[in-house]
Nucleic acid binder design. Structure first.
Lengths: 220, 220
DNA sequence: ACCTGAACACCGTTCAAGT
DNA sequence: ACCTGAACACCGTTCAAGT
């Protein structure tokens, strides 16, 4: 919108979109989303907060650029194996990309990126599905199901890890305390699995459910 | 943590947890999550902002209580049909509960409720799965897959509806503009489905994938 | 016991003015 | 052209003091 045009006249700029997004992602890892403020970021770049607004119209604009950057190099994965192996690789790569940064899922879910990395990922997933013979509708909806499951999952994963509001106990501990066996017998019985912390296995289970469903759809 | 004990001595309280959560949910529908501040809420209750802290330790505590309330009466659904019909009903009811309030999915995903409504829902889902013969591990992981898919989906649904940051165009419009057919041919081809706005159909498709996957798991 | 008033330490954002 | 300085209109949270 307001990006400075090419020939670097005058003083060389201390700021630019790319360097700012880099610094912002580093700062995100350091302090988390809730403490990532425009002033803190400006500080990290040795600049006043107002200066950032020459490169990003709003904080949301910055967060969107960060979200986009997190998905870099995603579409390159998923080129080996049959369609279900490719989709598995793509989905796992998206999960890994979101988990790679502190609060990554929350950043991604909160903004709505439509940049080249996001679109490239979608293109790759739909490409695999269409090549496998799925129709336009099924391919589009499968993309959404895979993406929404992945986002929902990583969101909960990252939420489960931290202090979480009041007392201090993290998510699994709170659940263990809350799920009294008398009131919630079924829940209490599955608590070991629910609080196991083996998120990769949980993710793969859900993913395999979706892919098994697709396989069944294929032969019908 | 700091709830006033039972006998209503002194002046009758103007505030209490339940009334405050009610008002907060109404205010949420009116102004949205981003504009839901402690001061605005206090205003709506004819009180100073500080007074709210006698009933909620933090704003997050309030949001958690709001999230819990949104899931009221959820576990009561899903009592008819076979296990897959029951799970369908439960998942749809959760989607409906989150969609019922403005930014409902964002409120729910942002806080980690472990109250009776949330636990009751989990108990119901696990109950259906265990009764259908699924093992403890599969039942626990299926609950997570269903919940995370539902949360991810409703999050995107509600995000797709609103103004969304910069220019003004809502999410589907931005996607239509960004998905150039030359760079993203596969994506462009499925754009009609992707931007159709028939979210209920998209949700049911993903849900049916998960259930089909479970059915396949059953016979193996 | 319950709430007010006022403060503390912040926010995102804007914009004249400097260099 | 790029950034500073300073302001505007807010935040969540705390806590003495009033009633």
């Amino acid at each position: 919108m307001s990006s400075p045009s090419t020939p670097a006249r005058g003083r060389p700029a201390r700021l630019d979109r790319d360097r700012t997004v880099d610094t912002a992602l580093d700062l995100l890892d350091e302090v988390g989303l809730d403490a990532l403020t425009m002033r803190r970021l400006a500080d990290a770049m040795d600049v006043q907060a107002g200066a950032l607004y020459r490169y990003f119209a709003t904080k949301d604009d910055l967060l969107t650029a960060m979200a986009e950057r997190m998905l870099a190099d995603l579409a390159a994965t998923g080129t080996d194996g049959d369609w279900s192996e490719r989709l598995t690789t793509l989905a796992r790569a998206m999960r890994a990309a979101l988990l790679a940064r502190r609060d990554g899922a929350r950043v991604y879910a909160g903004t709505h990126a439509t940049g080249p990395h996001t679109l490239g990922f979608a293109e790759a997933v739909v490409g695999v599905l269409r090549t496998a013979g799925f129709g336009e509708e099924d391919a589009a909806r499968s993309l959404m199901a895979l993406a929404h499951f992945t986002i929902g999952h990583t969101l909960e994963e990252q939420a489960a890890l931290r202090p979480s509001g009041d007392g201090g106990a993290a998510d699994p501990e709170r659940l263990r305390l809350a799920a009294e066996p008398e009131r919630y017998p079924q829940l209490a019985a599955v608590l070991p699995t629910l609080t196991s912390g083996d998120f990769a296995a949980h993710f793969d289970f859900g993913l395999s459910l979706l892919l098994r469903g697709l396989r069944a759809l294929e032969h019908s």
